[in-house]
């Protein structure tokens, strides 16, 4: 069995809660565990938020395409956008997890969450668009 969800939203933060709701509804239908649902919703929010904040261009001026495919053993999330080329998995700064409160940098955590919570991550640039793929094996 597999089911999928395709969404197109503009590059505005206000669009993202509806994406999370739609993904949670798919997860409920497909019987994802709490951990799988949290990882998928978080991964998608972190990647899409990065696109909106750092992709460049006017808010609302470009589209983000999201595809979530659920099968028996995994959930595959794909995000495509026309913002400037950016590989979050290799170009984002690594947070210093051992720093004390006052020395800890604000931010840099989103990509770290994605790397830890997802089982596979990849990035490619295709036809002038960014393409991020994340896979969560179902637990």
């Amino acid at each position: 069995m597999s089911a999928s969800l395709q969404l197109r939203v503009t590059n505005r933060i206000e669009e993202l809660p509806a994406v999370a709701e739609a993904v949670e509804a798919l997860g409920a239908e497909e019987g994802w565990s709490q951990d799988t649902t949290y990882a998928v919703v978080l991964g998608l929010e972190e990647v899409a938020t990065n696109v909106v904040r750092h992709g460049g261009g006017e808010p609302g001026g470009s589209e983000i395409e999201i595809e979530v495919t659920s099968s028996d053993d995994e959930v595959r999330v794909e995000v495509r956008d026309g913002g400037k080329a950016f590989d979050p998995f290799h170009e984002a700064p690594e947070p210093d997890l051992d720093a004390a409160v006052q020395d800890r940098e604000i931010g840099g955590l989103g990509v770290h969450f994605v790397k830890v919570l997802m089982d596979e991550t990849s990035y490619s640039r295709e036809g002038g668009r960014n393409h991020v793929t994340m896979v969560k094996r179902r637990s």
Partner: peptide, 20 residues
């Protein structure tokens, strides 16, 4: 029910302000 890095950033900011 749910918090992402955007929310953790706020917790860290508050912890820094209070720490000072």
């Amino acid at each position: 029910a749910y918090i992402s890095s955007a929310g953790l950033r706020v917790v860290l900011l508050i912890a820094k302000t209070l720490g000072q």
